[in-house]
Amino acid sequence: MNRRNPEYDFKWCPGCGDFGVRRALEQATEKYLIETEMPVEANVVVAGIGCSGNMVHLLEGPQPYGFHGVHGRTLPVAMGIKMSRPDLNVVIAAGDGDFLGIGFEHVGPQAARNLNVTAVVMDNGVYGLTKGQSSPTTDLGVITSSTPYGKAEVAINPLSIYLTMGVSYLASAMSTKIKDMTSLILNAMMHPGFSVVHVQSPCTEFNDTYELLKGNRKKGIEPVAWSVPDGHDPEDIEAAFRIATSDGIPMGLLYKDASRPTFDRQIAGLTEKAGAKSAAELMESYAI
């Protein structure tokens, strides 16, 4: 629902990157529904557990259909919804812990299937709601509440992992750049296949990376974020890999392959000849 619901007592902290992601998601959804002439009730938001998952309750405007399930399982739920009703627009709102930690095992299979949903992953590099534990994208050596002597693992590179697994639309965005993010999310929704918009969405409380991402000339801090060059061909997977594995965090559209059939079309094609069987027909096959 929205902030006006007095019973709902969850709040994002001031300055949380998720505010910007919400704005972009709202605008992208609105544009998508207008362009496709779909009613708001044809849009379903599947949320993970964590600060970012509260997106489903905090979206302003008309009450959308939402699913706020258990930790890490947005993709299986989204598969159940989308494969039951391919006519619905299914959007996932999850964080780096939910999507790439506990729920990581589900990314590869959905990429291989090319499930036609859009995942908006809010990466703050930390478990915020449980008060500052390390996440898969926390850097090596960083001290968090669960790594008091420094993190012993290197951070994963989500972008190159998505590409390796076969995500068919991949964009990287920054929570403060709402206009760019809106357009990347809208195009992800339009994309026929599994699309991921991975957003740097800093946590002001436990992992404030705003300055690191944007840089600070006065302090001599070079920005970690950089824009994907204009000339990049998003259909060139090798170029996409080069960008994903470069230093820093590239922002923009990295990869897009609209030629692969979506999961629902693939299955429809494979089973077309088999045809639907009724309970009565099947029963008859066991007649004595």
């Binding site: 399930g69 399982r73 739920v77 159940g80 919804i81 039951s84 589900h106 299979p109």
Partner: peptide
Amino acid sequence: GPGRFVYQGTSEIESINAVLGAGYA
């Protein structure tokens, strides 16, 4: 056939959550 979906999940966790999505839908 149309309107139906059957699939081998990657785990029982995926299976139950997919069935949850289907029941919801």
